[in-house]
Write a protein that binds this DNA or RNA. Sequence first.
DNA 1: CTGAAGTTTCAATAAATAATGAAAGAATAG
DNA 2: CTATTCTTTCATTATTTATTGAAACTTCAG
Lengths: 168, 168
Amino acid sequence: MKLTEATEKFIQAWGTLGSSWGINRTMAQVHALLLIAPESLSAEDIMEKLSISRGNANMNIRALMDWGLVSKELKPGERKEFFSAEKDIWKVATQVMKERRKRELEPVLKVLQDVSVVEGDKKNKDIKAFNDTIKNIKGVVTKADKTLEMLIKADESWFVASFLKLLK
Amino acid sequence: MKLTEATEKFIQAWGTLGSSWGINRTMAQVHALLLIAPESLSAEDIMEKLSISRGNANMNIRALMDWGLVSKELKPGERKEFFSAEKDIWKVATQVMKERRKRELEPVLKVLQDVSVVEGDKKNKDIKAFNDTIKNIKGVVTKADKTLEMLIKADESWFVASFLKLLK
DNA sequence: CTGAAGTTTCAATAAATAATGAAAGAATAG
DNA sequence: CTATTCTTTCATTATTTATTGAAACTTCAG
């Protein structure tokens, strides 16, 4: 396979993966492009290679920066801004977990907490069933949350880090 | 909090969680409704409680069955079909992991495999950078895939099962 | 300053996705 | 059979989400 073809296929696949996980397709494509770019790229480079508008490029670049996956680079002598992506995919995964945990898991945990004190007859069948299910869900979601927290902090802990090696 | 209010909040939260993870909002709401329903519900019950159309209800119930999260029940003497959700959230999580792994991770792994044999000068900077990045990504994605496989099979393996308890 | 080069914003538009509901299709009680 | 009850399908419509591109804004060299 030729490099250009491989590049396109990869960008396409990464975009599809992103969009099935709730990440804007174009955002994932910009990310893919930067991941495999040997040099940092300008907004114009990105617009051109993905055939997208200036505004779209700008928005998605910014979103990627918000997620901590892409950073701005200023080349001396150049006025334009250049962008590059973190190449270490483990770090990328960690960063994504961190963000999603904060943005999505935590609000759900909060609702589960709120919702787990239902007033009324403890012997009422409906109330009992509701409480049991919520308790169960809360348990699993909390566990998932803790597991993610652990994975995110893995790099700071040799114990977990060495444990993770077992998974390789 | 009253049961009705709690129910609504939970359905709402589950729907939001679903839609930020690439799962149709209504599908997640139907799932939530069935999760906390003490009895199995008919299509009509679901339509009514979520204020959705017959077609919509039908589509999403079927999708949930495809995902293996909901099953059809036939009550003796009743002509209608009734539906109920798996209440054990760990099983739900396992099932979701299994499906998404199959539907999304495996196609990406395939592309990564295809794309990792780029023709040309091995010393060419661009080709080298591309190959390195793809190799790195493939490593992490493969590891994620294996980890999921392990988690999915956890129930069948006392070793992994007892290991998972450590995470609690 | 001033203007050229670059970036950001956002209302308008396009594209993708989901929901409706009526019609067609099944299943079954009588 | 066939009338009734229930389920499924799918063209149409509505909603949501993403994209465009022109105008406003920023930065900085001269």
